[in-house]
């Protein structure tokens, strides 16, 4: 009986580990679909392919939500070390927020269809790629939090570097937008999207800062 319970407990732990991995995979997939959709928008506007990727991001975000809820329930049921449980839940929720931003940004683009002029497109694309890379580095840091605590610090350093890169792109881009001849409404609309995309990197860095503390707490 003891061994049966023990092995089923081990099985449940493995299933939970797999779910955490799947959840982090979803965040990576979401970033990839976001990048693809944004590039299509910059090149062709809201076309069929853009909508397909938007749909994909919505589906992945929904699946990530479901996975996160399952993980949370399972963590509570199994009464994981409460201190660790709190950290893990907070980490997953914060990372899940990033998939919400991916979805919300694409949805706003689809609704508002901002007119991104040719002269700003390369910077917008670079900003989006850097922000997605920043989120991906955070996901890598989160993975190492579960499997290789010593590697967390290096991954977090990469998040911080990419967030600075994103700032280095977004600030001149905003200056460029506001020094152009566009009308104020147009400028404000473009600035809004610069900020929305940059927000991905900012939020990834905030989560990375929290993760650094969680990792210190877990050090033996």
């Amino acid at each position: 009986m003891f061994f049966k319970n023990n092995s089923s407990l081990l099985g449940r732990t493995r299933k939970l580990e797999a779910q955490v991995d799947q959840f982090l995979d979803k965040v990576n997939q979401c970033g990839k679909a976001f990048s693809a959709a944004f590039q299509i928008y910059l090149e062709n506007g809201v076309v069929e392919d853009f909508d397909r990727y938007l749909g994909e991001v919505q589906t992945i975000e929904h699946e990530a939500d479901d996975l996160r809820r399952n993980i949370e329930l399972e963590l509570y049921r199994r009464t994981l070390i409460p201190d660790l449980r709190g950290d893990v839940l907070q980490l997953l929720e914060n990372i899940d927020d990033l998939t919400n931003i991916y979805k919300a940004d694409l949805f706003r683009i689809s609704v508002q269809q901002p007119d991104i002029l040719e002269e700003f497109r390369a910077d917008f694309l670079e900003l989006a790629r850097t922000a997605v890379a920043c989120v991906d580095s955070l996901v890598a840091a989160a993975r190492s939090f579960f499997t290789d605590i010593d590697a967390v610090r290096d991954n977090i350093r990469e998040v911080v570097r990419l967030e600075s890169d994103a700032d280095r792109i977004s600030s001149p881009l905003q200056r460029k937008i506001f020094s152009s001849d566009l009308d104020l409404a147009h400028k404000t609309n473009l600035r809004y999207f610069v900020e929305r995309i940059d927000e991905l990197a900012n939020q990834a860095e905030d989560v990375a800062d929290q993760l650094a503390i969680y990792a210190i707490k877990r050090r033996i």
């Binding site: 732990t13 893990v88 579960f146 033996i220």
Partner: peptide, 20 residues
């Protein structure tokens, strides 16, 4: 213990279970 865990790198959730 610290050296062993660093070498074997158990998943945090499994380590938690084992610790309990």
């Amino acid at each position: 213990i610290s050296w062993t865990l660093r070498k074997t790198k158990p998943h945090l959730l499994r380590l938690d279970q084992a610790t309990r």
